[in-house]
Amino acid sequence: MKIFKVRRFFQIFSTIIHNGYPGFLATGSIYTGYFKKFCGPGLNCYSCPAALFSCPLGSLQQIMISLRILPWNYLSQVFLYLLAQILLFSLFLGRFICGWLCPFGFLQELLYRIPFYKKKIHLPFRIERYLKHFFLLTFVFLFPALFIKEIGYGILWFCKYLCPAGTLEAGYFNLLINPSLRNKIGYIFALKSGILAMILLFSLMELRFFCKNLCPLGLIYGFFNKFSFLKLRWDEKSCNQCTLCEKICPMNLKIPKELNSVECIRCLNCLEVCPRKAILLDKNFLYLPERYLIKQSVGVLKNEKRR
């Protein structure tokens, strides 16, 4: 399992990079340095004491809550800056970020390795498939812009009421290192802790439960899976229909039909397990000149034959 080991290394390395500020142990406060000007690719709360980068989802909501307070031309520039980062992440990597770089995805994979009752979780009418669409539209975009507090700012709905990474990394770690925050614990913290506990429990039962059903960031990256430079390709001639790829897929995808679907996290398990190497990594951008050359040479050969 060569790819699996490389992926594990990437996940560990990325988690360390996302949370690469050990200074919080001395200062007792979060990182406020240069790297907070940029978003990290994975779901990692920017209020975590060790977090180096800003969170793309949190930053999106920060723009939405400021719509009634800050000037539009200023906010549109900030939005373009954020959009550019998300676009570049999505285009170059797509959901490869989920499979290889996201700290919360890594945590879920570790949890699933714990021996426990395993079961795929389904809700009536399979609505779990559309929960992340709902959360992206409402909790990230609409509600932060619509529901305004007296001072004019909105509320970070996803961060405040749902985000399990925020509860775990920011909530619990800050409470540990900063006892003065403990008097602020209230019913919202209890609600968020309950949601976190449920997500962690479901992650013990089903691999990557949060990624499959709830993560709006994964959904954003997933939209670009079809256009990403990093794509998977199925070689029909080599395939012997053994379905090993489907059995090993952590997202329960129907391969090859859903090979480049929104849900594929590019873990490359299918590529690794395929005995006939029928699934290949199609590096769209990098292979373009080669294809062009092949087409050109075929054209030259045809012309020579005609002569």
Binding site: S47, G58, Q77, V78, F79, A170, N174, L175, K184
Partner: peptide, 26 residues
């Protein structure tokens, strides 16, 4: 286009302890 004001916005919002993210606002 966004490089002039975007980084300072992200830095200012990302550098404060977000009580909402922690679930400590009620």
């Amino acid at each position: 286009i966004g490089a002039f004001v975007g980084p300072s916005f992200l830095h200012s919002r990302g550098s404060i302890l977000c009580l909402s993210c922690m679930g400590l606002e009620e």
